[in-house]
Design a protein around this nucleic acid. Structure first.
Lengths: 144, 144
DNA sequence: ATTGACCTGTGAGCGACTCACAGGTTTTAA
DNA sequence: TTAAAACCTGTGAGTCGCTCACAGGTCAAT
């Protein structure tokens, strides 16, 4: 298959396919008659993997090295594992952080919701901003 | 306080402070004698808010508009709320996605862990790649 | 034969920094 | 007091991972 088809089936931008090819992540054959690139179903799998890996926050160089390790078929590759483990740690941390912030946002939004007309005033926003780092205060009125 | 001090207390790169200042997110006074920028504690709060908001995925223009709405003190601003709600949805989605992928990674790593010497071979990686989209198969041997 | 949809390479633009440079200022400390 | 170190200034360029724009070549359908 050629660029367009590959891109369509993997639901990515054709330019991304071209970009990955330029970067050496995909290595299609060339049709010598018209110089078009010919991708295999192997390339499709690599592309899909690459996209998922990107979502996980792997860098293109990392993905490239994982992929090329997988290419020469049965090399033991502790490096891939290191990359993986390292990335997993980062993902866990990010997940935690995101979770906290999500809760913070929800609280803030609830505080807004319960206002007379549902629109916040400057004060609310100020409080939100001032106590952003302090979940105990954000979204709650002080006792007074 | 000046650039360096502000940056240190907020634990960001001084260049980020300069960048935010260039972008109009922070508006320090100028010391006319030496042309240095003078930041207030208000700026510190804005900076901290901006960093948290960035982690949540708000864009700089969004942050800028939230901050300037908060500046002219008591404007009701449904826009800020819209941005906030919209972003919350995205965060929820991202959280879900990240969660799934984290589990996927853990499974994969466990499968590796249980291998004889703890290092994966080409086959394992291939399976991981081939069935990346298919949690039922990744990290498990087929029945045979 | 012409249209339109594809393909090619290259180069530039994006957001949000980050770094490098060249020069001016302030602080420290010998 | 003066030299060095540590700051500050603006500007411009580099980074990553795309994405788009351009100019031109190829191919299938009408």
């Amino acid at each position: 298959m050629r660029v367009g088809e590959l891109a369509r089936t993997a639901r990515v931008n054709p330019d991304t396919v071209r970009f990955y090819t330029r970067e050496g992540l995909l290595r299609p054959d060339r049709n010598p008659s018209n110089n078009y690139q010919e991708y295999s179903s192997d390339d499709l799998q690599k592309l899909r993997f690459a996209r998922k890996a990107r979502q996980l926050g792997f860098s293109l160089p990392e993905i490239k090295s994982i992929l090329s390790h997988a290419d020469d078929h049965h090399s033991p590759c502790p490096m891939v594992r290191e990359v993986f483990e390292h990335r997993l740690n980062e993902v866990e941390a990010q997940l935690q952080e995101l979770h906290n912030l999500r809760d913070r946002m929800k609280n803030a939004l609830e505080a807004w919701q319960s206002m007379p007309d549902g629109t916040p005033d400057g004060h609310t926003i100020c409080r939100l901003i001032e106590h952003w780092d302090d979940p105990a205060k954000a979204g709650k009125e002080e006792s007074r």
